[in-house]
């Protein structure tokens, strides 16, 4: 079913909208959540909560594309749960990608007061300046927390080539943050 039709059903408050939504996006939602939580029960809970979130916010919202909106909700719910349970060692893809992102922090020992808006703007600019292929790779690793192997397969790259590519991109992000005087 087309996204527009699912949204129309949501506007009509038809519960079929949720089953159609699940039919179309559940696999991807589960993957995003699992990459963060690495626990099937938690994933189940987050994905169901995400559907509830969709149900409660559409209407009045009419997101386009719907997929991005749903994925965003799933990721935020999964991150909340991850933090809630962070004491427990999970060894998820998210945790691994988080460790990689740590390399981008300009000065780990310094304490600054760069605002969230400033930080977001620099990252947005950094992503916007990347060529499309690099941007998608970067997003897949650090937004979707996909595994290196999955991304490498998708881009027909060796694991090592992808690793080097992502390393360079992280270095580039670090330089951007430094250049803009961002201190976390």
């Amino acid at each position: 079913m087309e996204d527009k039709e699912i949204i129309r059903l949501l506007f009509l408050r038809s519960e079929n909208a949720l089953s159609e939504l699940a039919k179309k996006y559940e696999a991807q939602c589960r993957r995003i959540s699992f990459n963060i939580l690495n626990d099937s029960r938690d994933v189940e809970e987050c994905v169901n909560d995400a559907y509830l979130g969709v149900w409660n916010t559409i209407p009045p919202k009419e997101p386009d594309p719907l997929s991005a909106y749903v994925f965003k909700i799933v990721k935020n719910l999964s991150l909340n749960k991850y933090r809630y349970k962070s004491a427990k060692k999970r060894n998820s893809q998210y945790e691994i990608s988080l460790n990689e992102l740590e390399e981008c922090i300009p000065d780990k020992n310094a304490f600054g007061n760069s605002s969230d808006d400033e930080l977001n703007a620099v990252i947005k600019q950094f992503l916007g300046d990347l060529d499309q292929k690099s941007r998608i790779m970067f997003m897949k690793r650090y937004w979707f927390a996909e595994s290196m192997d999955d991304i490498a397969r998708e881009f027909h790259l060796s694991h090592n080539a992808l690793k080097v590519k992502l390393f360079r991109l992280r270095k580039r992000l670090k330089k951007c943050l430094e250049k803009e005087g961002i201190i976390l």
Partner: peptide, 14 residues
């Protein structure tokens, strides 16, 4: 921050 900033490019990845 990456989570928020990346939203603009989600559709592209999708």
């Amino acid at each position: 921050a990456f989570n928020v900033a990346g939203e603009e490019f989600l559709a592209e990845v999708v």
